[in-house]
Design a protein around this nucleic acid. Structure first.
Lengths: 221, 221
DNA sequence: ATTCCCAATTTTGCATTCAAAAATGTAAAA
DNA sequence: TTTTACATTTTTGAATGCAAAATTGGGAAT
């Protein structure tokens, strides 16, 4: 198994919440499960620690990182900035084919909204946001975005929404698609910021920070 | 020696250009120099590879990463976005004490400009940009900024400037300080973007991309 | 019963070792 | 002289071993 694959497998285990935030990471167990020795496992853990998904405690092993309210706020703030930038760049560079794909994903998402299927709605939602970042054509930006969104994914894509908030989110997505189609970078960036700000408020209000006695148990879509 | 210290030492060696972009990283030599064995060294290299400073080639060891023109453009683009965001947030959160420090650093930098001392000018310049990011009060943002700027540091802070460009840069810094003092987040974010865009143009025009036969040999200030 | 202390055990972090892959050098053939 | 085939050496990637640190468990003292 290649180094990057080991990192990916452990990342997935953490994002799935199989090892919940704050829990110790059982080295020996993971070694057996992935059929590798401690050396490559530990290399992967150091990389994930640099990403912020794992917390290393000298001589006390590693734990799945826990997010405080402040962490969550900071991550959403940066995510807002990155998506706003991606939106602007996407408007300059997006191809018609990419635009069609996003429009299709949008229609799909709206259908799931009408059907009241939150899981599928979130899946389509995420696909749209990621497609915008891809359309920005900047791999550095895409990399940072991936790393930031990984850390808030569980909060972002599992928080339940009131009917009002959900309706607003869909409305905002209409505006997002519209701005993209008009190649209105400035407009899109403003809409994306507002959209993310609303999502952050939802998440923080729902008390999703991963502090003591507040372990999210839901699985991501 | 602690893991983070090993990473830091190697990072410094790479940023100093002691191992120039594209060059193989001599494991055995570094082990002797840092007085550690290959295990912790290799752990550090994987982390630096995830940061983008090192390139890992399966079964062929690791090299100091080389930046193409496209990489440089992408990094500057993201850096622009991060600094613009930092500027906005800093205007909301900066304390009077922080503002005074930046004003002092600015005065210092202008003095070095008047004296024609490019090295010292760049040192002060960098301190200001970093202080703005710190004043944003968002450690996640600060971390991403550090990682992005590390990769372009050599290009950003060693490129020679024409007198015209240098004068413009100083003028932009006057505007930066002014916007900060007026707590004009939107204005500051626009100025920072333009400032970084100009720097990027300089760097790319100077042909600083680290492609074949174009190894920068200058040391950073 | 609770707290404290200390021995036994486990876990961590790193050095070393080992097998596999790549690089190098040499000699023969074209 | 250049190219190719092959044996040798070097380097890489991962498993193992070992010392140091932390955790655990049990008994003595309060």
């Amino acid at each position: 198994m290649l180094h990057e694959e080991v990192v990916g497998r452990i990342r997935a285990i953490l994002l799935d919440g199989e090892i919940p935030p704050g829990a110790r990471i059982p080295e020996r167990e993971l070694c057996e499960r992935l059929q590798i020795s401690r050396t490559p496992l530990r290399e992967a853990l150091k990389v994930l620690a640099a990403e912020g998904l794992v917390q290393l405690l000298p001589h006390r092993g590693s734990r799945a990182a826990k997010l405080t309210d402040k962490d969550m706020r900071d991550l959403f703030e940066v995510c807002q900035g990155l998506e706003a930038l991606a939106g602007e760049l996407a408007c300059e560079r997006i191809t018609d084919a990419e635009l069609d794909e996003i429009a299709a994903a949008h229609a799909d998402m709206v259908r799931h909204y009408r059907e009241g299927d939150l899981i599928q709605y979130y899946r389509g939602n995420r696909a749209i946001h990621e497609a915008i970042v891809t359309a920005a054509g900047n791999p550095v930006l895409a990399g940072l975005y991936a790393s930031v969104t990984a850390r808030i994914r569980r909060a972002r894509y599992v928080t339940p929404m009131t009917p009002q908030r959900w309706a607003l989110a869909v409305k905002e997505h209409e505006a997002i698609l519209n701005a993209l189609q008009r190649r209105d970078g400035t407009g899109l960036s403003h809409i994306l910021r507002a959209h993310l700000r609303h999502k952050r408020e939802e998440v923080l209000q729902a008390g999703f920070a991963e502090t003591e006695g507040n372990e999210p148990t839901l699985r991501i879509a």
